[in-house]
């Protein structure tokens, strides 16, 4: 039963397939009611995107090429953000094996953001109200955060919960690929794969065993749930 062996949600990001198009960023923002904050605030580095595509230049013209890394909360097994929160707003979900942020507990100390090596957390410096009728598209399944609250990628926990509830209502297990976060659903090249890591036959489990796989900052021992697959080079055949 699912109750005895809680699932561990995981993600694989194939950097060889990622084109850096940012569709995941927009999809995440539209799904999760992420506030847009305008040019000036962004210039201050207060952007609210829960995920971003990091672009690094390598080489010199004309042999120059960018490498891309979509970066989001790695949903660490040993998360540096969790022990520093004085009010237990940042804590581990034993059920889903993700790091949850409880908005109503958060008092805005920002300790968690300081301690996150992946810089995956963003802070609501202000209330960013949407002029009517733009607020019509807000997702009713996701809390609209107010000022002074820390937020971050949730692996689209609202979709996980809905998917699990639907499966339980029908008395069955969640099928592989049934639950997808907004980024993986949008990704035009299917570079982002999401699924249950405890099921060895799931698509995501198979991909984590790839020789190209690596963790971000593995040496920190954070035990991330996101595996990246190295791009370029030669393989296959």
């Amino acid at each position: 039963m699912a109750e005895e062996y809680p699932q561990k949600w995981g993600m694989v990001i194939d950097l060889d397939v990622c084109t850096g198009c940012n569709a995941c960023v927009t999809a995440c923002s539209m799904e999760n009611n992420v506030s847009f904050i305008g040019e000036d605030e962004n210039a201050y580095g207060r952007g609210m995107q829960w995920m971003r595509v990091q672009r690094y230049w390598e080489g010199e013209y004309p042999d120059v090429a960018p490498t891309r890394q979509p970066m989001l909360c790695q949903q660490c097994g040993h998360a540096p953000c969790e022990p520093v929160c004085p009010v237990f707003a940042s804590l581990h979900s034993e059920e889903e094996h993700i790091n949850v942020q409880v908005y109503n507990r958060c008092i805005g100390t920002r300790y968690c953001a300081n301690n996150c090596p992946y810089i995956a957390r963003v802070f609501n410096w202000f209330d960013y109200d949407l002029p009517s009728p733009l607020n019509f598209y807000l997702n009713p399944d996701v809390t609209v955060r107010r000022r002074s609250v820390m937020e971050k990628c949730t692996f689209c926990v609202q979709r996980i919960k809905h998917g699990e509830a639907a499966a339980r209502a029908e008395g069955r297990e969640v099928a592989d690929g049934e639950i997808v976060p907004a980024c993986a659903q949008a990704c035009p090249t299917e570079a982002i794969i999401f699924g249950d890591l405890t099921d060895p036959e799931s698509r995501v489990s198979k991909l984590t065993r790839s020789q190209r796989g690596f963790y971000q900052y593995e040496e920190l021992g954070t035990a991330p749930a996101v595996v990246y697959l190295k791009g370029g080079g030669e393989y296959g055949g």
């Binding site: 569709a23 927009t26 999809a27 009517s132 659903q185 949008a186």
Partner: peptide, 20 residues
């Protein structure tokens, strides 16, 4: 064409519909 995939332009179509 897109087999379930979507780009940023399509994703923000609702911001056109509900544009103030």
């Amino acid at each position: 064409l897109n087999r379930g995939k979507i780009c940023p332009r399509g994703l923000t179509a609702v911001q056109g519909l509900y544009n103030p």
